[in-house]
């Protein structure tokens, strides 16, 4: 067992972790944050995507031991109280959700993307969510939702 300090969704934790424990296991099994999904465990489906120091990463391929002193944002930390984040709002409004299993990962990829590039093209979005497999939507509506979210966020910034 080794001890690490991490900040998850703004809250600080001191945790005893196993050397081979993944960030995904910590989030789901220790912190009860099951919004981050396990889809493959091989880093290919992206259902486990979270933001680590603002970047989209695959929590199934991240040893939690390596996140010591780092900041993690999961889908549960995106809302402001009862208020949805504009990306979440946009997913709801654009029918971008079907089974919803890939949704948290997609939203977290989108979050990192929009932090970096507030005005992405359709192509930028498709490239940045390449790691997020979705078997239901065919990607069209999620891409639309992310582009709409970018507009929303830009609009807020204008104000």
């Amino acid at each position: 067992m080794l001890y690490i300090n991490i900040k998850v969704n703004g809250k600080e934790y001191e945790l005893g972790v196993k050397p081979y424990e993944t960030l995904l296991e910590t989030l789901r099994d220790k912190l009860g944050l099951t919004g981050t999904k396990l889809g493959c465990g091989d880093g290919e489906c992206g259902a486990c995507t979270v933001n680590l120091n603002g970047k989209a990463v695959l929590s199934c391929l991240t040893l939690v031991a390596q996140t010591d002193e780092k900041e993690i944002l999961t889908i549960e930390g995106l809302q402001n109280g009862a208020e949805l984040h504009p990306i979440q709002e946009s997913f709801v409004e654009n029918s971008a959700i079907q089974c919803g299993y890939c949704t948290p990962g997609l939203v977290m990829s989108a979050k990192a993307l929009l932090e970096e590039n507030g005005d992405p093209t359709d192509e930028n979005v498709r490239e940045k969510i390449a790691n997020n497999l979705c078997r239901c939507t065919g990607y069209e509506q999620p891409v639309r939702a992310i582009l709409e979210a970018a507009k929303k966020i830009r609009g807020e910034n204008d104000r």
Partner: peptide
């Protein structure tokens, strides 16, 4: 009408509990 699916908010916030959860 393209009404919002009733479970959209649960799913987009990570609250929806799937079998695996």
């Amino acid at each position: 009408k393209s009404v919002t699916r009733f479970d959209a908010v649960d799913k987009v916030t990570g609250k929806a509990k799937y079998g695996i959860d």
